[in-house]
Amino acid sequence: MNPVNYLYLAALLFTIGATGVLIRRNAIVVFMCVELMLNACNLAFVAFSRMHGNLDGQIIAFFTMVVAAAEVVVGLAIIVSLFRTRHSASVDDASLMKL
């Protein structure tokens, strides 16, 4: 098997995640889809790391995880406070910016 297949898998997962972000209204699910995209990227990094024979790709994936963790913490806090004020977790309800 060609290890490039890992990249194809990463691309596929990333696309699925992106599409999910676009079509789901529940903010939590949208967030999960974002996580899915991040994980797809991490897979690609790890695969690259293996191809190039050095650990830099893994380091980047590691940092991605850290940043993702921070992002999840803040993002979920936002969702909670949003739900608290609007009694809804739908991203479409937060549409006051339109004209």
Binding site: D92, S95, M97, L99
Partner: peptide, 12 residues
Amino acid sequence: RRLQNGYARSYA
């Protein structure tokens, strides 16, 4: 302007 519907998903 109609594109600016305020829905984050449209912007996404």
